[in-house]
């Protein structure tokens, strides 16, 4: 999937992101949750909508790890999803969309599919 990405969307400055947490990025009509996993020095982006109850909330959740896998827990009912693959780690909710992230010159970019 990464190879087909052509459009890098400038989301915010590094200092606007929340350390070890998420922010919500407005991307046209879409909402993308952007996570700065400072502890692992990693960036992740996923859809902001939690598929469980269709709430725009993942950016307000808590991040963490299950084994080695980085994950996000929805603040509503604590459904967890892998930040790396989008796969649901608790129960059988459908997977969430993930996006590649890059940082250049203090700006954070999210890779969108055209």
């Amino acid at each position: 999937m990464i190879e087909t990405t052509t459009n890098w969307f400038a989301a915010c400055r590094v200092e606007d992101a929340v350390e070890n947490g998420g922010v919500c990025v407005k991307c046209g009509d879409d909402q993308i949750a952007l996570f700065y996993f400072t502890r692992r020095n990693e960036w992740y982006a996923t859809q902001n909508l939690c598929p469980h109850r269709q709430q725009m909330a993942l950016s307000r959740g808590m991040i963490g790890s299950a084994g080695e896998d980085p994950k996000i827990a929805c603040p509503f009912h604590k459904k967890t999803f892998s930040l790396a693959t989008g796969e649901c780690l608790s129960g059988d909710e459908c997977a969430i969309q993930t996006y590649p992230v890059k940082v250049e010159d203090g700006l954070v970019y999210i890779g969108l599919n055209n």
Binding site: N20, F37, R39, R40, G61, M62, I63, G64, S65, A66, G67, P70, K71, A73, K78, T80
Partner: peptide, 19 residues
């Protein structure tokens, strides 16, 4: 939290131990 995790825990935390 980070100090606690570094000193007493392992991994990167989760929605159970953080709160």
């Amino acid at each position: 939290y980070e100090q606690v995790l570094d000193n007493l825990g392992k991994g990167d935390g989760c929605e159970v131990c953080k709160p």
